[in-house]
């Protein structure tokens, strides 16, 4: 494992825990898209079914279990515990426009036509667009709390670092996985606009708000 990959995983973990803590401490999930969080829970579940079939390392197993557990906890906080604070009126992205095309694509473009491989591929495609309901919500309300911005930034940095990891692996190991790379590129591009706003506004101590 190279440094980019490790820092990418840490950034991903930081994002997930940051969101959990934000909701827990403020006792509120205002401004958070429950739909994006459900999509991420689906992504982790579909991808990490190999927990039951394949042992890779203690690190790998622990991270997968933590990601899944945190993800389901977040969904539970939004739709059950702090349901009264959930901003459903602004969380109106139609997720079927993401789930259906990525599911069809996973059937058509995959490495191997087996159930686990198709589910893995589906999770890669779905992850690349799963943040759209959240970004849509931010654009609809025109603003995001600073801590939500930090969450989005850490989440975007994670896949960006994975891109460097893949360049590294291609160069030093001759390994590449085109499905992951293309989806990872799409995922990173979706964050670019947000990265710009984050760097120009949030890092200068301003709240992220979009021009009306």
């Amino acid at each position: 494992m190279n440094l980019f990959r490790f820092l990418g995983d840490l950034s991903h973990l930081l994002a997930i825990i940051l969101l959990l803590l934000k909701i827990w401490k403020s006792r509120s999930c205002a401004g958070i898209s429950g739909k994006s969080q459900v999509l991420f829970a689906v992504v982790f579940t579909a991808r990490y079914l190999d927990l039951f079939t394949n042992y890779i390392s203690l690190y790998n197993t622990c991270m997968k279990v933590v990601y899944i557990a945190c993800s389901f906890t977040t969904v539970w906080l939004i739709y059950s515990k702090f349901k009264a604070t959930y901003d459903g009126n602004h969380d109106t992205f139609r997720v079927e426009f993401l789930v259906v095309p990525t599911a069809i694509l996973a059937f058509l473009v995959n490495h191997d036509f087996t159930p686990l491989e198709i589910l893995w591929t589906f999770s890669i495609y779905l992850e690349s667009v799963a943040i759209l309901p959240q970004l849509f919500m931010v654009s609809k309300t025109g603003e995001a709390e600073t801590i939500t911005s930090h969450y989005l930034f850490a989440l975007g940095v994670y896949r960006t670092l994975y891109l460097f990891n893949w360049i590294w692996r291609y160069h030093f190991e001759g390994f590449f996985d085109l499905i992951a790379i293309v989806a990872g590129l799409v995922q990173t591009v979706l964050y670019c606009d947000f990265f710009y706003l984050y760097i120009t506004k949030v890092l200068k101590g301003k709240k992220l708000s979009l021009p009306a």
Binding site: M1, R5, D9, H12, R47, D50, N54, I56, S57, N60, M63, K64, Y67, H111, D112, E117, W120, Y162, N165, G174, F175, F176, D177, L178, I179, A180
Partner: peptide
């Protein structure tokens, strides 16, 4: 190669 391997990435 781009073939299916044990998935060591997260």
């Amino acid at each position: 190669d781009s073939e299916s391997k044990p998935k060591d990435e997260l």
